[in-house]
Structures are given as structure tokens and as C-alpha cells.
């Protein structure tokens, strides 16, 4: 039986006909909470994967009707184009402040921010830390690719030591630019944080781990426990000057030495925290 014969009527987030057939089922499709719009990201950029995971989560928790997403400035500045939920475009770095107000004015809303490393860990660090310290009931999806992608590949607060960028052409030097900032390490001391985890987007297995972490970070908000944040170690194939596949391997081989993945804080299911020990906070700044 051909796909064409099977495609009849089942709703999907894209405008192609879906399939319904007695003996065929669709096991994976674009989430209904995503729009059909073609994403503007470069080939192989993991933003698209993380967008899909966000869409899946909104679908899975049935949150679309009362979700307000807050988008950043950076590569994902158009994220609101790709989700079906209400959305606010914040100024650079201020998404946690915007989200704070949206949530505080009506706690029945599900409020998430989607931010990059320049947005969250550089210009918006104050808003990030204070939202976390206050234990705002918001969920932050933090995409860390260690570079300013949209503006042309400048050094980010999370660029690795030795990493060549357009503003560190000989490689990042700790003596003059400091060490990369580990956001999870930094926030893990704050009691307002209910869930904090870092995951590399480098393989199907890790993407599935990301899903598990995202569920917890969302539950941190829905169960009124505090702020939830998932840091995605993400690729920037174009600005890293690597193929998409090499960029994913670079995460596994190199990036995780500076940014060890794992669950840093879990006050959602405290039992899990013991079964998933917090990774060493040793901030090695390993060679790129």
C-alpha cells in the first residue's frame, strides 16, 4: 500500500495530508503545537530539533491553550513563528523578566522562555539569576552553542577556551576573556531553582534524554515547585565551520568536557536526584 493511499485526513502540524489507515499508524510527526512554517535556521542547526521537542512537550502536557512563550534576541528571534501558542518577543536578555510578569499576573498560564547563550548568559545574566533566585514558576529552555550565531560568530560567554570566533580569532584566551560560564553550575546554588539539567543534542539517545529533562522542567512549573531550566548543548555548524555531523561529534568529544551533562538540581522528584548524582562542578575549561 502506498503512502498516498494511506494519507487521508489525520490532522498534522504541516499542511501535507496525514495518514489514516486501518493497519498503518504514524509513529512520529511534526508536533501539532508547531506551525507549518519553514524554519530559517542553517542546515543541521539543532535549534530545529529543540523547537520540535518544545512542541512535543506542549502537545504532551496539553498546554497549548494557556501557554505563553517568550522568545529571545539571537538566532531564535523568530521562534514565535514556529509555535502555535501565544508568544512575546522580548528584548535581548530580558525574557526571564518578561516571563516573570506574565506568570505572576496569572499563575494558570504555562510560561516558557527560549533563549540562547548570549541572551541568557551574557546580556541577560542578571534577569536569569534573579528569576532563578526568586524561584519564578517559569520554564527556561537554554540553547548553548557557545557562539553568537546570528551576528556572525562572535565569542560568547560560553565559548570554549581555545575556540576560534570572529572576536577571538586566535582562540579564546582565559587570561584576557575569562573562563566559559557554566550556567547550570552557577544556578545550582539557588534554592529557587526546582529543576536544572544539561543535555547534549548530539544523538537520538541524548535527544530522548532531553525529553525527560524537559518534562521535569515543565513539571517544576506546573507543580509549583520553582524555576525549571534545561540547558541544551547545541551545535552551530556554520559558525563552528564544521559539518552538522562533525559538530555533533564535537559536542560529545569536546564541549562536554567544559559543560558536563547531567541533572544538577531536582526538587521535582527528589528521589531522582539521588539516583542521578549531580555531576562534578569542576570547571575545567578543557581545551577546545
Amino acid at each position: 500500500m502506498s503512502i498516498e493511499m494511506a494519507m487521508m485526513g489525520k490532522a498534522s502540524a504541516d499542511d501535507r495530508p496525514a495518514t489514516t489507515c486501518d493497519d498503518v499508524e504514524c509513529v512520529m510527526a511534526r508536533p501539532a503545537s508547531m506551525t507549518d512554517k519553514l524554519m530559517h535556521y542553517c542546515p543541521g542547526c539543532t535549534h530545529g530539533i529543540i523547537h520540535r521537542l518544545v512542541g512535543e512537550m506542549i502537545d504532551e502536557f496539553g498546554l497549548l491553550d494557556h501557554t505563553v512563550g517568550v522568545c529571545p534576541v539571537g538566532c531564535s528571534v523568530f521562534a514565535y513563528e514556529y509555535f502555535q501558542c501565544d508568544a512575546i518577543e522580548a528584548s535581548h536578555g530580558r525574557a526571564p523578566a518578561v516571563a516573570t510578569a506574565v506568570k505572576r499576573t496569572d499563575s494558570s498560564r504555562f510560561v516558557f522562555t527560549y533563549q540562547g547563550d548570549g541572551d541568557l548568559a551574557s546580556i541577560g545574566m542578571a534577569e536569569t539569576i534573579h528569576a532563578a533566585a526568586r524561584g519564578e514558576r517559569i520554564t527556561i529552555f537554554f540553547v548553548n552553542n557557545g557562539i553568537y550565531g546570528m551576528t556572525g560568530g562572535q565569542m560568547a560567554p560560553t565559548s570554549l577556551i581555545g575556540q576560534k570566533t570572529t572576536t577571538s580569532p586566535s582562540g579564546r584566551i582565559a587570561e584576557t576573556t575569562g573562563m566559559p560560564i557554566g550556567v547550570c553550575e552557577l544556578l545550582s546554588s539557588l534554592k529557587g531553582v526546582a529543576y536544572l539539567a544539561r543535555v547534549p543534542i548530539s544523538s537520538p539517545k541524548n535527544i530522548n534524554t532531553a525529553r525527560k529533562y524537559m518534562r521535569k522542567a515543565i513539571r517544576a512549573q506546573l507543580e509549583n515547585k520553582g524555576l525549571g531550566l534545561v540547558e541544551f548543548l547545541s551545535t552551530c555548524p556554520v559558525q563552528w565551520a564544521m559539518s552538522p555531523i562533525a559538530a555533533m561529534k564535537h559536542i560529545d568529544n569536546t564541549v562536554i568536557k567544559t559543560f558536563p551533562p547531567g541533572v544538577f538540581v531536582d526538587r521535582v522528584d527528589p528521589v531522582d536526584a539521588t539516583s542521578t548524582p549531580m555531576p562534578a562542578v569542576a570547571h575545567t575549561g578543557a581545551e577546545a
Binding site: V68, V70, I88, A90, S91, R94, A97, V98, A99, T100, A101, V102, R104, T105, D106, R109, A126, E127, I129, H130
Partner: peptide, 25 residues
């Protein structure tokens, strides 16, 4: 809602958020 923000920068962006969400802020 009353919230003492961490800065005026955060304050005005909280106003942005509350206003976007339809409230007198």
C-alpha cells in the same frame, strides 16, 4: 501583583510582559 525587580531594566521588561498579557501595569 507587586514585585521589586533586580533593576530598572528588569522592571520595564516586566511591565512589557504584564502589559503584553493584558494587564494594567
Amino acid at each position: 501583583v507587586f514585585l521589586q525587580a533586580e533593576s530598572e531594566v528588569a522592571s520595564i521588561n516586566m511591565v512589557y510582559g504584564a502589559s503584553a498579557a493584558g494587564h494594567r501595569t
